[in-house]
Write a protein that binds this DNA or RNA. Structure first.
Lengths: 225, 225
DNA sequence: CAATTCCTGTTAATAGTTTAACAGGGCAAA
DNA sequence: TTTGCCCTGTTAAACTATTAACAGGAATTG
């Protein structure tokens, strides 16, 4: 890959779609396909083929006329762009239902991204394992984050504890935070923050469902939205 | 409220923010506040006061100069816009960790929106209650959806079952679907669809975390988005 | 009662994202 | 080989969303 090429300025939405393209492509590869057309990717993702071609143009990948894109090559390229070389370690704070759901999602996947620790305040949970992920006390967060080189924290605690936990993560030296609680948090500018609120999403669906006539159909705010 | 006023064309993002404003306002009300400034709302939500004022302008609400907005009035107005008169019934399909997390989030809340049923394929779960929500067999979906007048379905099953479950929901006559699995689904145009994929979001955070220099800070992709 | 400050409401400008339009090249069929 | 079709790559336009700019009114101060 051209080392002069920087992908820093790719649109946010393109980054999200690349992640999705890759997962769809991996499935296609497992099904024995070697090439794929932009309109096929588009159909899987419910978007237009123009958008797919535009995204691939932005990352500088070219397909073959009348043959489409080489799936393996494209998977590799997307990996070069969105994965980090070293692998990234993630912690889940709050081992309730949501935290466990996230750990389940990731267990057994061969991502460059791994959940390597859980945290909770409940003494009964500390020391337990969930799909190979150990649960630690939030009091030990600073130590564990350093030891395990954790750079991303996912907050899945009850809303009442959100602020406190977020501050703890920041103090521990985390670089990115994904907040799944309905309570917005404050972080320093140098920390990347993404917030997603399930209640808001459900209320939004309810709003468009109750509308008398045709509602615009949105695909994935996706963290967005 | 002016009956001629239609809120059909409010921006998607505004709808999402209204839901969030309301929740923040309810907390303020409980704390004994009666009025609030746009910059106070903005600070809570990590947005600019201009955006708050713009959103409120769009819904036609006026504040008082040097006094701010009447919290109770604003809560009521937001309710008139985003709530439906009759209340909306929701089902969660997939009573795993994620499904249970959603039910927990909603239990005890006095929303116009209530989760009134869970579905699962696991016979061991059928008949159980979670926070007052009964778990039914997916085979009975059509019947239960009709009986309980369910209009929204939330999909929280494993990705491998997503398509099948989505089709079942559509056949049952649901009007809106919120898909939390990483597998995109197809629905007829008249059904409102929102998809959110946690893996994508986490990969996005990882992308911006690994970037050498300053990353743009986003607040809430939020359904999605 | 000026001058100042604070906060709202609105319009204008900018930024971000999607969609439309089209140029072009290769395969296929006649 | 010519015609038609299919698919890519790119530029331009449209659309959506955020931010800047500013007009204006009420409380506040000197």
């Amino acid at each position: 890959m051209d080392p002069n090429k920087s992908f820093k300025h790719l649109p946010h939405k393109t980054i999200e779609r690349l992640s999705q393209y890759r997962r769809a492509l991996l499935i296609c590869l497992n099904n024995g396909k070697s090439h794929i057309f932009s309109h096929e990717i588009a159909q899987i993702q419910h978007i237009t083929s123009v958008q797919v071609r535009r995204d691939l143009m932005l990352i500088g990948y070219s397909g073959t006329l009348r043959k489409g894109y080489n799936i393996q090559e494209l998977i590799d390229l997307i990996g070069e762009i969105i994965d980090s070389n070293e692998g990234i370690n993630v912690a889940v704070v709050g081992m309730g239902n949501l935290g466990r759901a996230l750990i389940n999602y990731f267990s057994g996947k061969r991502h460059k991204l791994s959940i390597v620790a859980g945290f909770d305040t409940n003494p009964d949970k500390i020391g337990n394992y969930m799909n190979g992920v150990e649960c630690f006390s939030v009091e030990d967060m600073h130590k564990i984050v350093k030891e395990k080189d954790i750079t991303i924290g996912i907050i899945t605690v009850p809303a009442s504890q959100t602020t406190e936990i977020c501050d703890l993560l920041v103090e521990s030296g985390i670089k990115g935070i994904l907040n799944y609680t309905p309570k917005p948090v404050n972080v320093p500018d140098e920390i990347y923050l993404e917030e997603y609120d399930m209640i808001t999403t459900l209320e939004k669906v309810a709003f468009y469902v109750k509308l008398p006539d045709e509602a615009p159909e949105t695909k994935q705010s996706k963290a967005r939205p």
